[in-house]
Amino acid sequence: MTNKDLLIEKFLEHTLSAEEQLEFDRLLQSDAAFQQEFEFQKKLKASIIIETREKQKQQLRALEREIATPSRFKYAAAAAIILVVFAALIFALIRPDTDDLYASYYEPFPNLEKPTTRDKTTTDLPAKAFYAYDTENYATAAALFDQIYTQQAADYAILYEGLSYMELGKFRQAIQTFELFDFEKQNNYTHTISWYLALCYLKNQQTERAKFLLEEVSLSDSQFKTSSTELLEELN
């Protein structure tokens, strides 16, 4: 094994000394054959990783099939699916229109964070954002809350950016914004965001997702508990 091969090997092992690292960098810049061998080794590493992961994935898929459909249930499952499809068809004919439900449950959410000052010259980003929100300039508000989120990942920025999109009728963007929230956190925003996210899903006719969120909110002690319970009943 040449010295060069040894360097590549040590690089892959993460055992290069500082001195060897310098030599390694120098060769990579100046020696075409070394560069080529290094490229080969990198691709080899990638291909072995991809191959090994594919094998593991196959095993996990087999495991998943085992969990999802124990064989004695397969026929029952098929029958159940047919039933569900029929039920869904009938249900679709009689269930309330999601747009109507949205309209009767959606209420704009007030600014509870920052009392707005009338000073339009303020340079404070949150103050500007809430000013835009309170004066119903929702496009501006959404853009400003997005900046705040980018800078400090604040939860309130997620809530009010999403709300601004809802006011603009941009439900896809509202959903994408609310999804940035870390739902494992339990804070003042958790159920408020879940509630409004559920309404967006409702508007988007993704009723199952909406129901899932409403169930959570209806079990909470949030201000939207009662509304969630009622809306759920109407959806069921």
């Binding site: 691709k43 291909s47 072995i48």
Partner: peptide, 14 residues
């Protein structure tokens, strides 16, 4: 890398 032809060939050969 998954899109790379060399990698695909190497994977098959491996």
């Amino acid at each position: 890398e998954m899109q790379d032809d060399d990698v695909r060939k190497m994977k098959a050969s491996f």
